[in-house]
Design a protein around this nucleic acid. Sequence first.
DNA 1: GACTGTGAAAAGTTTCACAGCT
DNA 2: AGCTGTGAAACTTTTCACAGTC
Lengths: 234, 234
Amino acid sequence: MAIISRDFDAPLGTSAPTLEVPEVVIDRLPQYVRTLTQLLEDGVEVTNSQQLGAQLQVTPAQIRKDLSYFGRFGKQGRGYRVRHLLDELKQILGLDAEWNVAVIGVGRLGNAILNYPGFNPDGFHLVAAFDNNPSNVGTEVGGISVQPMTALAQTVVDRDITIAIVAVPSAHTQSVVDQLVACGVRAILNYTPINAQVPDGVRVRSIDPVLALQSMTYYLAYQGHPTNGHQKTG
Amino acid sequence: MAIISRDFDAPLGTSAPTLEVPEVVIDRLPQYVRTLTQLLEDGVEVTNSQQLGAQLQVTPAQIRKDLSYFGRFGKQGRGYRVRHLLDELKQILGLDAEWNVAVIGVGRLGNAILNYPGFNPDGFHLVAAFDNNPSNVGTEVGGISVQPMTALAQTVVDRDITIAIVAVPSAHTQSVVDQLVACGVRAILNYTPINAQVPDGVRVRSIDPVLALQSMTYYLAYQGHPTNGHQKTG
DNA sequence: GACTGTGAAAAGTTTCACAGCT
DNA sequence: AGCTGTGAAACTTTTCACAGTC
């Protein structure tokens, strides 16, 4: 039982990440990390599930339950030492490591991503950029020299790249994702509006502002759009 | 029973959107819309839950169940007419209307958003931009003249703006969101890494690439990061 | 024969409520 | 007294399986 400080005997070492911890829980941990980081910066040394819940708009019980999957980090009657809990969560999420990231596609969006300063403080280092278009290859974007796609496999190995950000035209998404998977990349942040198919063991997250807007309009549509009367078809 | 073609008597007209339809279902509908749009463009006239499920990596049963909240759109033995189902779903989501959107903050990120061509084809029109910084006010970004924040309330009314995209520095998020809510905006797409507090009836969706990356590293950390041995603290 | 629409079962997730530690 | 950690209960969501229609 070397891996996480949990004391049940789930079959570790299976290739699919079907550990005992529900995926929804994992998805919340980064938010806890962020809130704890904030508290730490504000000089708060001890917190509790009540306070964290208020910040995150989540019930205190949920926070306690989520944390209980990984260990006992608090002290009854007192709460959680902010620094301690933060360190534990970062370690659980693998955020105590530095991660090298490649950006595929240096069009308008890829450019914005490469120039975005928000990744580095969190341990994600954009270390390589690739593009299909010969006129982009060799240019510098965000301090990184753009390489041709043919250099992908070699650079992924040389630079120990484990994560890729895809910002290519929609039509190329699947092909680029296939190439990344073939190179051994197993975490992909997809900025295109395409549902790429990947084998088991590869994770894809999508950033899709249009989908986000479209799921909100449902609630707007009848809560009363000021001027625009929605007429039914059927 | 005017609003949606469903035949149960949930209390409509309540201010919070606690209709009978689960929120997870609403969140999936835009993806169905996208896939159907794709099929339509490819000239496919009839589809079925099997095919849609394969595209979306969702079980056919889930698609049928989701659709059943809104009506009976298919024909047994045949499937769904793509155009018909697409029209129905768009109507349900309010995507048969055009939505005017304001962008708050025209820094690097706001600039990228205002120049992003992906919103308009889906009926979202970026019609106004605001910034606090006097040196940005009056400039043109993405064909839109940047206004001061003081003009917000008036412009929201004049231009029938119902949705806002927030791309300001983190420290200003809550204040900007408060102003938007005060103006009557009830759907906000938040590009900052801050959890804004909003009253009931206001929807916030966040675009947060760092959180997306951080939830993937958990799975990478022990599936075997090529070189980097993760050592436990405790 | 093929597929939808849907109750009912199963699985997953959240919340409750309280024993137990500080 | 105050808060955590956690089984058990409540609730939500997904999947199953099949009657019904084309």
